[in-house]
Design a protein around this nucleic acid. Structure first.
Length: 460
RNA sequence: GUGGUUGUAGCUCAGUUGGUUAGAGCGCCAGAUUGUGGCUCUGGAAGUCGCCGGUUCGAGUCCGGUCUUCCACCCCA
C-alpha cells in the first residue's frame, strides 16, 4: 500500500456511499412526490452564478461565506499594484472573480423569474432540489456543500400560499415519520416591535438577538441588546413582550395593544391571525404554533416566517422559509411577492438516522446472483439472465469464475437474497439449484420455473 | 472570521519521564473445505505515527507552522 498522496476531499464536503444514497433518495423522493402533488414544477439552475447576482443578498455575513470562482485565463490582467496593497480583500476578489457558487436556491430562483418573466405563468410554483455551497466553518450538521429542497410560489400575495406550504410541510414530515413543531411568526410583527421601541432602522439587530431566546434565555438576549448599544429605556420597553402569557389569541391581542401606533405591526398580527385560521382548516397532524421569538436570519423576508423543529432530536431547524415581498426588485422586477420554504435534507437525514426512521431496504436491488462455474456455464446463464430481465426481475451474473464460496460471500455482502448454482450437472438436466442466503436452504428446480419462483418469492 | 480541540494499520483505539525492529481488537487476504457465505482453527499482508520544518546523539512522544476533525462563538440548513 504505497500511497503517493492520500486521497481526500475538501473540508466540509462528503461522499455518499450506496447505502447512504438509498436513504437520501428516500428523503428526496418523498419530498419530490409531495411537491408535485401540490402543483410545484421542477426547476434547476447552474451551480455557479455571476457574483453580481449573489452579492449583497445575504447580508454582509453572507457575502463572506460565498465561494468565489477564480476567473479563467489571465486573471491578473485587471489587477493593479494598488489592489494588491489595499487592505480591502473584497476589492481584489471582485477583480479576480466574477462568478460564485450558489449560496441558496431562492436568489437564483428570483434571478430566473426576472430573466424569464415573459415566459412564466404567474403565480409560478416551482420546486428545486440541488446542492448549495457556503464557505462556513463546518461543524456537526453543518457542511460546506449541502442540499436544499425548495418550494416557492411567486406572484401571489394570498395567505393561502402560506397555508398550503404549511400543509405541505405537515404532509412531508408525516410521510417521513418525523415529529415536528411548525413555528410561525411575521416579520411585520418584528418590524412593529422595532418601531415600538423607536429603533425601526435597527430591526435586524433586534431580530437576531430575539432569535436566540430559546437558546440563551431572555437575560442574555437583553445583555446582547445592551452590548449592541440599545438604550435601557428601549430594552425596558421590550421586556414585557417576553412575558406574553396565554393562548395564541390572547398573546396576539396583548401584542396589538402594544403596537397601537405601528401600522406594520398591526398588519403582521392580522396576517398571523388569518394564517392560523386558514391552517386550522387543514387539520395538520403536527403542531403549528405562533412563536414571538422566531426571527430567521435571512434579511429578505418581509412577511410570514416559518421554521420547523424536530421534536425528538436536538438539532437546528430542519426546514424554514417565509414571504419576501420584493426579492425580484433587486433584479429589476419590483412588486412581485413570493413565499417559499426550504427543507434541509442533510439534517433531516441525521434526524431520521438517529431515530432509525428509514424503512428497511436492501442496498442491492438484485434478487438473484448466478454463480459463475466457468465459461460454458456462464454463457448458458446469459440466456436465463436475459429472460429474467425481460420479466423485470433484477438479477446478475458473477463476472469471474472464482471459487463458489467467494461468490456466495459476495452475494451475501451485497444483500442479494438468492444465489443460483448452475454447474455442469444442472446445465445438462436443465435445472437450477437455488440457495437462499438468509436461511441457507437450497433446492433444485426446473429452469423453466425460475421466473415463477422468483416472482413468488419477491411477493413474500 | 474568533477561541479551543483532534489526527498512530481499512475501522476503533493503546503506546510509560524522548531510547532498539510501533502494538491490540475488529476487519481484510490465504489455507483447513478443488460446487456452498456466516461459526471455528491455522497462517499472512498491511503504518514515511496527518503534512512540512525545528530542537536533540536519538522524536509517535518536545517546539513552530500547516492541513484535517470535532466543539463553542458568529451566522445558519
Amino acid at each position: 500500500m504505497a500511497n503517493i498522496n492520500k486521497p481526500s476531499i475538501p473540508k466540509g464536503t462528503r461522499d455518499f456511499s450506496p447505502a447512504e444514497m438509498v436513504k437520501r433518495n428516500y428523503i428526496f423522493d418523498t419530498i419530490k412526490t409531495v411537491f408535485r402533488k401540490y402543483g410545484y414544477l421542477p426547476l434547476e439552475t447552474p451551480a455557479m452564478e455571476n457574483l453580481s447576482t449573489l452579492l449583497g443578498k445575504y447580508g454582509e455575513e453572507g457575502d463572506k461565506l460565498l465561494f468565489r470562482i477564480l476567473n479563467s485565463g489571465n486573471f491578473l490582467q485587471e489587477v493593479s499594484p494598488d489592489d494588491l496593497k489595499s487592505p480591502d480583500a473584497n476589492r481584489l476578489s471582485l477583480k479576480l472573480c466574477e462568478k460564485g457558487l450558489r449560496y441558496d436556491l431562492t436568489v437564483p430562483f428570483a434571478r430566473y423569474v426576472v430573466q424569464h418573466q415573459h415566459e412564466i405563468a404567474f403565480p409560478f410554483k416551482r420546486y428545486q432540489i440541488q446542492p448549495v455551497w457556503r464557505a462556513d466553518r463546518p461543524q456537526k450538521g453543518r457542511y460546506r456543500e449541502f442540499y436544499q429542497c425548495d418550494a416557492d410560489v411567486i406572484g401571489s400575495n394570498s395567505l393561502l400560499n402560506e397555508a398550503e406550504l404549511i400543509q405541505l410541510i405537515d404532509e412531508i414530515f408525516t410521510r417521513l415519520s418525523v415529529n415536528v413543531k411548525i413555528k410561525i411568526n411575521n416579520r411585520k410583527i418584528l418590524a412593529g416591535l422595532a418601531d415600538y421601541v423607536g429603533e425601526a432602522a435597527r430591526m435586524a439587530d433586534i431580530t437576531i438577538a430575539i432569535d436566540k431566546l430559546d437558546k440563551i434565555g431572555k437575560e442574555k438576549v437583553f445583555g446582547e441588546l445592551q452590548e449592541k448599544g440599545f438604550s435601557q429605556s428601549a430594552i425596558d420597553k421590550i421586556k414585557p413582550l417576553f412575558e406574553l402569557k396565554g393562548d395564541t389569541d390572547t398573546r396576539l391581542n396583548t401584542l396589538s395593544n402594544f403596537f397601537k401606533g405601528s401600522e406594520t405591526g398591526l398588519k403582521g398580527i392580522e396576517e398571523t391571525r388569518m394564517l392560523l385560521h386558514l391552517v386550522s382548516k387543514i387539520f395538520p397532524k403536527n403542531q403549528v404554533e405562533y412563536d414571538f421569538a422566531l426571527a430567521r436570519g435571512l434579511n429578505y423576508y418581509t412577511g410570514t416566517i416559518i421554521e420547523v423543529q424536530a421534536l425528538d432530536v436536538e438539532i437546528g431547524s430542519i426546514c424554514g422559509g417565509g414571504r419576501y415581498d420584493d426579492l425580484t426588485g433587486i433584479f429589476g422586477l419590483p412588486g412581485i411577492s413570493g413565499v417559499g420554504i426550504s427543507f434541509g435534507a442533510d439534517r433531516i437525514y441525521d434526524v431520521m438516522n438517529q431515530l432509525n426512521l428509514f424503512p428497511q431496504e436492501t442496498s442491492s436491488s438484485s434478487v438473484l446472483l448466478f454463480a459463475n462455474f466457468g465459461a460454458k456455464e456462464a454463457q448458458y446463464c446469459l440466456g436465463l439472465l436475459a429472460k429474467l430481465r425481460k420479466a423485470d426481475i433484477c438479477a446478475e451474473l458473477y463476472p469471474d469464475s472464482i471459487k463458489i464460496g467467494k461468490q456466495i460471500a459476495y452475494a451475501s455482502e451485497r444483500g442479494i437474497p438468492y444465489v443460483a448454482l448452475l454447474g455442469e450437472n444442472e446445465m445438462h438436466a436443465r435445472q437450477i439449484t437455488i440457495k437462499q442466503l438468509t436461511t441457507g436452504e437450497q433446492k433444485t428446480i426446473a429452469d423453466t420455473d425460475l421466473i415463477d419462483f422468483l416472482k413468488q418469492v419477491s411477493v413474500e
